[in-house]
């Protein structure tokens, strides 16, 4: 049922149904984090609660704004379009609350940022996962 509105959107927008990017949520392998629930990842990326299970501060990283992976990640995470995510953040920014995840300028910057901080958490294309990272959440198709 959940995919029905999404399909409808694709039809409405005339979006070509090319192969979808497949985001997986990863952390630095040294962080000691094994798994995160979808709710925990939502809380971190939407700035509601940025504490990892080991007590450390979670530092979320977004893919570049134009990235298809970013749009796909938020669709799978909360079933929201990027416009809605922007509206959500504009509420929090302009009421002086939490800041959005740091937006990387490129895919390679995401990788660099992930490696440089133990609390870093990001989503990357499954094919880019290597031994420096640990997958903590995968989305059901």
């Amino acid at each position: 049922m959940r995919t029905l509105p999404l399909l409808l959107i694709c039809v409405l927008l005339g979006v070509a149904s090319g192969p979808h990017a497949e985001p997986v949520v990863v952390v630095n392998a040294r962080s000691g984090i094994e798994r995160l629930s979808q709710d925990e990842v939502i809380n971190i990326f939407l700035g509601r609660y940025r504490k990892l299970p080991n007590g450390a501060q979670a530092i979320p990283i977004d893919q570049p704004e134009t990235s298809a992976l970013r749009a796909e990640f938020y669709r799978r995470l909360v079933n929201k379009e990027l416009n809605e995510i922007n509206a959500y953040w504009s509420r929090l920014i302009f009421s002086g609350k939490t800041s959005p995840p740091r937006s990387a300028s490129s895919v390679s910057e995401v990788i660099t940022l992930l490696g440089s901080h133990a609390g870093s958490i990001a989503y990357i294309e499954r094919s880019q996962v290597d031994p420096r990272f640990r997958i903590v959440l995968e989305f059901q198709r």
């Binding site: 922007n86 509206a87 959500y88 504009s90 509420r91 302009f94 009421s95 002086g96």
Partner: peptide, 12 residues
């Protein structure tokens, strides 16, 4: 609730 973003039309 939502009272401190009353002026930010885009977020509402």
């Amino acid at each position: 609730m939502l009272g401190d973003s009353r002026l930010v039309g885009y977020s509402n």
